[in-house]
Simulated scan of single mutants.
Amino acid sequence: MTSPPATKPYDPLRLCVYATIAALAWLLGPIAVVGFALLGFAGYLRARRQGLTRSKCVLRDTRLVLAYLAILALAGTAAIGWRVYQLLS
């Protein structure tokens, strides 16, 4: 009698990716926030132009995702400006 084929165990790769992004954000601070937000914004803008209107993102509507990413980029830029201001004063 042969045993049934073993199923592959779940690979939590996303968790490793999330941890890496969090580490980069922690190390680079607002620069990482701006970079990832702009990268995400560009990706969603391109996808929207190609017809994507619903996303797997929690916000679902790509317009909301674009607004969220734009706000993150602006907040990161403000934080960078604040840090530069503090260094120069």
Rank of each mutant, 00 (worst) to 15 (best):
15 L>N: 12
59 L>W: 04
10 Y>K: 07
54 R>V: 07
17 V>K: 07
60 R>T: 03
79 A>G: 14
69 L>H: 03
69 L>S: 03
76 G>K: 11
60 R>S: 03
21 I>D: 08
20 T>P: 06
8 K>P: 07
23 A>I: 12
66 L>F: 03
57 C>M: 02
86 Q>G: 15
34 V>G: 05
1 M>Y: 13
42 A>I: 00
51 G>Q: 04
44 Y>L: 01
36 F>D: 05
85 Y>Q: 12
12 P>E: 03
84 V>H: 15
1 M>V: 11
16 C>P: 09
69 L>C: 05
56 K>G: 02
51 G>V: 04
3 S>E: 13
68 Y>L: 07
24 L>R: 08
34 V>T: 09
56 K>N: 01
82 W>S: 10
85 Y>E: 12
19 A>F: 11
36 F>E: 03
14 R>V: 10
86 Q>S: 15
41 F>R: 08
45 L>V: 04
47 A>H: 00
22 A>R: 15
63 R>T: 04
14 R>Q: 11
24 L>Q: 08
14 R>D: 11
58 V>R: 02
22 A>D: 13
22 A>S: 14
52 L>I: 00
61 D>K: 00
2 T>Y: 08
81 G>L: 15
75 A>K: 04
4 P>Q: 12
30 P>W: 09
85 Y>G: 10
49 R>M: 03
58 V>H: 01
49 R>A: 02
36 F>A: 06
77 T>K: 11
40 G>Y: 03
22 A>W: 15
62 T>G: 01
30 P>E: 10
69 L>E: 06
59 L>K: 04
42 A>W: 05
68 Y>H: 09
